[in-house]
Lab assay of single mutants.
Amino acid sequence: NITNLCPFDEVFNATRFASVYAWNRKRISNCVADYSVLYNLAPFFTFKCYGVSPTKLNDLCFTNVYADSFVIRGDEVRQIAPGQTGNIADYNYKLPDDFTGCVIAWNSNKLDSKVSGNYNYLYRLFRKSNLKPFERDISTEIYQAGNKPCNGVAGFNCYFPLRSYSFRPTYGVGHQPYRVVVLSFELLHAPATVCGPKKST
C-alpha cells in the first residue's frame, strides 16, 4: 500500500533546468501520483496529453512515469509533440509517434532571462542524422558540413554543433524561455507502482 506522493514538485520547481540537447530525465515510481497538483503548480502555457485524457490521469496506474525536463524558446514548444519536425524535434528531443503522456510548458522569462542575455541554455544546431525517439546526444564533436574532414577544428564548413540561446527579458514571447516537462507513461507487463490517489488504497 503506497502512500508517499510522487515528487513532481522537485521536477517542476527545480531551480535550474537542463539545456534541451542534454535534457534531464527523472524516473518516478512507487508513489501516489496526484496530477491535479500539477494544474495548480504554475499558470501553464501548455498542458497537452496524448493517448490519455488529462482529467482521467488520477484514475490510472502505470509501471513507471518518466519526467523529462529542459528549456526551449516559446515558438519551439509546438515541436514537443508526436510527429513534429524542426531543429528541436530533429536534433535535441524527439517524441515517438505513439507517445503516451503529457507535455507541460510554461513561460520562464522571469527566471531564465537576463538583461545582458542568459547564454547558459544550449541547443544542438547541427547533426548528421535525426534523433530516434527519446535519444539523447550530448556530443560536442565538430560538425563537418563540407567534404573536407574537420579534424576537430572549427572553421570553414566545420561547425561547433551547439548554439546558445541568449534569453533577454525584452524579447518577444516566441523568443522567451519556456520550461518544459514531458511526462511519459510506461505500461509494462509488470506491477503498477505509480497510481492516482483513488487507485492507491
Results as ranks from 00 to 15, higher is better:
residue 123 Y to N: 05
residue 117 G to Y: 05
residue 120 N to P: 14
residue 142 I to A: 07
residue 138 I to T: 13
residue 137 D to L: 01
residue 179 R to A: 04
residue 151 N to V: 08
residue 75 D to S: 11
residue 147 N to Y: 10
residue 27 R to I: 13
residue 100 T to M: 14
residue 192 A to P: 14
residue 199 K to Y: 15
residue 104 I to T: 01
residue 72 I to N: 01
residue 149 P to W: 06
residue 121 Y to R: 02
residue 188 L to P: 12
residue 89 A to T: 06
residue 19 S to E: 04
residue 118 N to Q: 12
residue 80 I to C: 00
residue 111 L to D: 12
residue 164 S to W: 06
residue 171 Y to T: 14
residue 164 S to F: 07
residue 177 P to I: 03
residue 53 S to N: 14
residue 119 Y to G: 15
residue 56 K to C: 07
residue 17 F to W: 13
residue 99 F to T: 00
residue 72 I to R: 00
residue 40 N to D: 12
residue 189 H to I: 09
residue 144 Q to A: 10
residue 171 Y to L: 15
residue 51 G to Q: 07
residue 10 E to I: 07
residue 75 D to Q: 08
residue 106 W to Q: 00
residue 161 P to Y: 01
residue 116 S to P: 12
residue 14 A to V: 06
residue 22 A to W: 03
residue 184 S to F: 08
residue 152 G to H: 09
residue 3 T to L: 07
residue 122 L to M: 15
residue 145 A to V: 12
residue 131 L to F: 02
residue 82 P to Y: 00
residue 110 K to Q: 12
residue 174 G to P: 10
residue 37 V to M: 13
residue 150 C to R: 03
residue 72 I to P: 01
residue 201 T to H: 14
residue 176 Q to L: 02
residue 90 D to L: 06
residue 5 L to D: 09
residue 58 N to S: 12
residue 60 L to E: 09
residue 78 R to H: 12
residue 28 I to R: 00
residue 151 N to H: 12
residue 184 S to E: 04
residue 93 Y to M: 03
residue 17 F to T: 03
residue 110 K to N: 13
residue 167 F to P: 06
residue 147 N to H: 13
residue 34 D to W: 06
residue 98 D to T: 09
residue 187 L to D: 11
residue 91 Y to F: 13
residue 153 V to N: 14
residue 41 L to T: 10
residue 120 N to H: 12
residue 196 G to L: 10
residue 107 N to H: 04
residue 141 E to Q: 11
residue 79 Q to C: 02
residue 138 I to F: 06
residue 3 T to Y: 07
residue 62 F to Y: 10
residue 113 S to R: 05
residue 93 Y to R: 01
residue 97 D to K: 09
residue 119 Y to P: 13
residue 78 R to Q: 14
residue 159 Y to I: 09
residue 84 Q to M: 14
residue 117 G to M: 07
residue 185 F to A: 03
residue 23 W to V: 03
residue 154 A to R: 13
residue 145 A to G: 11
residue 156 F to H: 14
residue 155 G to L: 05
residue 75 D to N: 11
residue 105 A to S: 13
residue 77 V to S: 02
residue 79 Q to H: 05
residue 34 D to Y: 03
residue 75 D to R: 07
residue 17 F to N: 07
residue 170 T to R: 10
residue 43 P to F: 04
residue 170 T to S: 14
residue 161 P to A: 04
residue 124 R to H: 03
residue 35 Y to I: 13
residue 128 K to T: 12
residue 157 N to T: 08
residue 85 T to H: 15
residue 64 N to Y: 13
residue 105 A to M: 06
residue 89 A to D: 02
residue 26 K to P: 00
residue 90 D to S: 08
residue 36 S to D: 10
residue 155 G to A: 09
residue 7 P to K: 13
residue 152 G to V: 06
residue 40 N to T: 12
residue 5 L to E: 10
residue 96 P to Q: 00
residue 23 W to H: 04
residue 124 R to I: 04
residue 26 K to D: 04
residue 40 N to M: 08
residue 43 P to G: 09
residue 42 A to T: 07
residue 111 L to R: 09
residue 125 L to P: 15
residue 160 F to A: 13
residue 91 Y to Q: 05
residue 9 D to C: 04
residue 66 Y to I: 13
residue 84 Q to K: 09
